[in-house]
Simulated scan of single mutants.
Amino acid sequence: MSVFKHVPVMLLLFSSITISAQENNSIQFTNGSFNEALQAAAKSGKLVFVDCYTSWCAPCKWMEKNVFVNDTIHQYFNKQFINFKVDMEKGEGVSLRERYKVTSFPTYLFVDAKGNQVHRTGSRMSVQDFITEARRANEPGNTLADMEKKFNSGDRSLKLLTDYAIVLQRVNGGQFDKVRNELISKVKEEELNTALGWTIIKNFARDEEDKLGSYLIRHRQQFNAFADEASIQTKLNQLASSTMYGLIRQKRNAEFFDKLTMMLRDTSYAAQRNAVMLQIEYYLTNKNAEGFLAVARTAQAGAFRNNPADLSFVARRAGYQANGDTAILKQAYEMARLAAQLEPEEYSNQGTLAESCYALGLKEEGLKAARKARLLADLETSKIQKIAQALVDKLEKLN
């Protein structure tokens, strides 16, 4: 584990703005008001990066722990922006939430010294995606505001539609659908055989049967010029999974099992894991307890035996879709119990075990897990704490 060093509180351009005393290997946020951050931006010629969060937002916490501490991220942000974070449910965060129409968390704003929004993004994302959005904010002509102006003025170039849709998918679902659909209807097949075409397919193909996905499958080899084999295979796997979940919903059973047979030929862990998840979803959706139990027990003894996250996920999913089937509930309990044994300090594992116990009327064991989950929730958000306490309460009332 890295050794974290504290940096001293420093003046930032003028005395009323200070850098938070925190680890020097994370994004450094200013103390002070939003207006003071804008004044600092005016003096420095930088944009203000605004981290809009809430106390209960789990993706906000994840980004803080896993992305803000990345060397590339904090070095870029600390050099390029005045960084300001604000709880959208407290103090001036309430008015800023209204001013910038923030409806989901985390939302990340990039504003100029006058408070005008230049760029915007949000949600949990990878280091690479986050740095891409930050650099976009500093590129004239490539920000969300710039692209919006171009689009509204009639620009329908493939490059503009592609870039605009990539940004919109994190901040405006309705407008994203509009731009994505226009892009897909506009792009010609011969234009997909390009680096830009790969970007379009990688970001917007949804399944094997749509225009983009089917083109990739039919012309897979030509994309070796634009992407590495691993990236192409990852996209193909995503398309296959999406298609198969669609087949489950549409009850196209024969097609589902034909594709499953092909998937099982891939002996990689990722493919085998995906096949297990698809089979579990198929059998649960079709209320086939026997099929579910066969797959779940095999996975528990094999591929998932040392994977508490997957064990816990299947247990939650099975508990949700069991419809009172005791055999399914018992299997969910067994998987939840193993997950909690493998990783006892993980909140979700203890919470899942407590829920499984509740479904089977196992009050004593359930309360033990629920109380453990409640303690672990103190390290999480206030929303999770409330959920954990509610779980303790309902188990205490169990006869």
Rank of each mutant, 00 (worst) to 15 (best):
Q128A: 14
R120E: 04
R97Y: 03
N138L: 15
T132R: 14
I131K: 08
G115I: 00
S95Y: 07
I131C: 08
T107H: 06
P106W: 00
L96T: 06
I131A: 08
K114N: 14
R120V: 02
R120Q: 12
H119F: 07
R135S: 08
T132A: 14
T107I: 07
Q128T: 12
V118K: 01
R120P: 01
N116F: 05
T132W: 07
A134P: 05
F110G: 00
R120M: 10
T121K: 01
Q117N: 09
L109M: 09
V102M: 06
V127C: 07
E133G: 02
V111K: 00
N138D: 12
E133R: 05
E133A: 11
T132Y: 09
S123I: 03
Y100W: 06
S126R: 06
V102R: 08
D129K: 13
F105T: 09
G122M: 00
E98A: 14
F105E: 06
D112Y: 01
I131F: 06
G115S: 09
S126A: 05
D112K: 00
A137D: 03
T107E: 11
K114E: 14
T107N: 06
N116Q: 13
Y100N: 09
T107W: 01
T132S: 11
R97N: 11
S126K: 04
E98L: 11
S123C: 06
R99C: 07
D129M: 11
Y108W: 04
G122Y: 00
N138G: 03
S104K: 12
S104P: 03
F105N: 10
D129G: 03
S123Q: 14
R120C: 04
K101Q: 15
R99S: 10
F130Y: 10
Q128H: 11
R136L: 13
R97P: 04
P106K: 05
V127N: 08
S123K: 10
A137V: 02
N116A: 12
R99I: 02
S123G: 11
D112Q: 01
F105D: 09
S95E: 15
N116D: 14
M125Q: 15
A134E: 01
S95P: 02
S95C: 07
F130V: 06
N116E: 14
V118Q: 01
N138Q: 14
F110W: 06
R124M: 11
Y108G: 02
I131N: 10
S126E: 10
R124S: 13
F130G: 07
D112H: 00
A134L: 03
F130L: 10
G122C: 04
G115N: 10
T107S: 14
T107R: 00
H119V: 03
T132E: 12
Q128Y: 08
T107Y: 03
Y108T: 08
N116R: 09
L109E: 01
R99L: 12
A137M: 02
R120I: 05
L96C: 12
F130W: 09
V127S: 07
V111F: 00
S126F: 09
M125S: 10
R136P: 02
P106S: 05
Y108A: 03
H119G: 09
K101S: 12
E133N: 07
F105Y: 15
K101F: 08
R135L: 11
Q117P: 06
T103M: 15
G122Q: 01
